[in-house]
Design a protein around this nucleic acid. Structure first.
Lengths: 199, 199, 199, 199
DNA sequence: TTGTAAGCGAGACGGTACGTCCGGTCTTCAT
DNA sequence: ATGAAGACCGGACGTACCGTCTCGCTTACAA
């Protein structure tokens, strides 16, 4: 019986979705993941931390994975946009360095890794992670490379998807395995795979 | 009345560790993982499937992750040995193709992916997975490359770990993301990263 | 195209209490109780069944118990009035037989039993049930007997409340326990307790 | 993470049912009912109060009603046995007075009333309450009266069940309605219904 | 004629309890 | 000593209602 609570009880928004609650959930999930890992990321803990009823979470998200997808999509568009300006080899290189740093340092990078991991454990997660994140981002990346090819900036010997796998794979794998990917490695990959010497 | 002892009831061994039970647990874990995914891989389910008491599992393995590690190490040494004979660029290429196929088709490959995933969720898993699998195998792979360099078969421009990350990363990432890594991609990586043209 | 207004949508009444909604709630509560028992009698279910917003219920009734009290009082005055005409032993006997039948067959009888039951679980219900139902009715019954005594129709050996308890108790208890009270029992009680033979 | 608990953790009993836990549950249920009413009698509260896991309750009792039935049967056999010795009118009278007091003062009396109430709300409760309590006890009471008739101690004008309803009904109804049944009422009922004057 | 005030259906909100599942620890008993 | 069996505490799951609230609409009455 928590009758001693004196503060005036944040009024809720009525019959429209409560944006405050929505953000509280997203941030609580993010924080819990970063602070205590995916294992501690239970719906109950999120609700507790966000100061929100469990039902409010279940009303809007079918699973905690969708919560993470929401935060990942927002943050990844914000912190790691795929370059859209004039496509140069340098902008691609910069994007890849940014990606490595995103995975290593940004909370949203942990979210990405957690989702990629959870996708191995649960087919539904895999499907949704592909639909909502991997496929759209892969599309943007393909565009980036295609435009750079059109502009004559790069001339990869492999198909677009293969090149992207070859560039992104080591970065992601390094983050998963806990090793740090050297800047040199990324640079070498860019040099070797995107601008094969013409001879 | 001959039927009082209705079924033969495999007798257990008394005071030595029961090898039958050990194998039953390993196989049950493997089967459950392949058939129903990591999410269905509970200790209770393993015990049920193996026809073994839960306590028998906890007596010998501190967690289900160690069970998977046991199966992974046995199977991976058996199905995907790191080449130890005369080191050639071709044997390395063969090893990488074998690795891709191992991840795609072999049940033990699913175990590897599951452990790599679980390592993202749980620091203990990460530590043990590194200690027992990643580090030893990385050591063998480093030896492989070092011997090939000594033999003049390859001449990578990057450090050993970076090269391995660059070669293995795309394969693992492809398996994680569900895409199929083309043989061509592996070949190109081998060509570009291990035998840079001397120009 | 006459069908744009697909269903007529009963308009509500504006700034006065909506009598249609009031009756819908009372009937919904009654029906739910009879059809699915008190356990299914939730405010949400009543609102759903009555086609009424939950808030409309909470605006007018402090609890579902008050809804039941409203229906009980209306129905019990209508279906089981305490006789007020010339008081005879026979009218008392008839009232008791009517009471037994009311409990056994009338939906409002189920409401009475449910409230008597709920009063055991919740002191507020007990208080309100006494105030609004038991006490007034007991008063009418006491008047009935008092007038019959004045008229020389009966001569009970016990106080009024005790006699009423002795007459009504078995009927109620029979209904609660699910047994059927025989007409003979009621008749015997009336004979023995109201008209003790003078010798 | 309640890691500060210093007390040595009552060890549990292994693969046999834990009698300590069983009694803790029964007493917790009883206490909660008496102290805070049936409304506060949730399975979670019982578990909390008994210091027992919820699952331990669900393992042994299908519902909280069965818990109450267990306590009622034990206590009611102990505190209010149906007389079995030489059957006299006086022993019957004593039993009825004891019954009135049991309902008014004994915690187990509250349990009986709560179950009788809950039986009105839920058919399953009704069925089990009849099977496990009402029917057996009614059988004993019928035996008591039958023996007393055989012994010439009483000579009721009604059938056994009707007599019992007439005697017990007012007592139970009084307890339900919160009124106190006078000793005089019980005595009068015994006199009038069991020993009709022979004229 | 037009505020304005109240009632209305709808439904989101913070909570509590439900009954189930599994984790990891413990004890008993047969082998 | 080992292993099968299974009870135990703990705690998360996803659902159902609770009682409160705000929204946008409709209607009736008063200015």
């Amino acid at each position: 019986m928590p009758a001693t609570r004196s503060q005036p009880r944040r009024p809720h928004s009525g019959s429209r979705r409560d944006e405050v609650a929505r953000l509280a959930v997203l941030h609580a999930a993010d924080d819990l993941l970063v602070e205590h890992g995916f294992g501690a990321l239970t719906v109950e803990a999120i609700a507790r931390r966000a100061g929100v009823a469990k039902q409010t979470i279940y009303r809007w998200w079918p699973s905690k994975v969708e919560i993470l997808l929401d935060t990942l999509i927002e943050d990844s568009d914000k912190h790691l946009p795929v370059p859209t300006g004039k496509p140069t080899a340098e902008s691609i290189r910069g994007y890849l360095h940014g990606f490595a740093q995103f995975l290593a340092d940004d909370p949203a990078g942990k979210v990405l890794l957690a989702l990629l991991a959870q996708a191995q454990h649960d087919p539904d997660t895999a499907r949704r992670f592909h639909e909502r994140y991997l496929v759209p981002r892969r599309g943007q990346e393909r565009d980036l490379l295609a435009h750079a090819i059109d502009a004559g900036e790069i001339a990869p010997a492999l198909g677009l998807d293969s090149v992207i796998d070859a560039l992104v794979g080591p970065i992601v794998y390094g983050a998963l395995a806990g090793s740090t990917i050297s800047r040199e490695l990324v640079d070498t990959l860019v040099d070797d795979l995107l601008r094969p010497r013409p001879n």
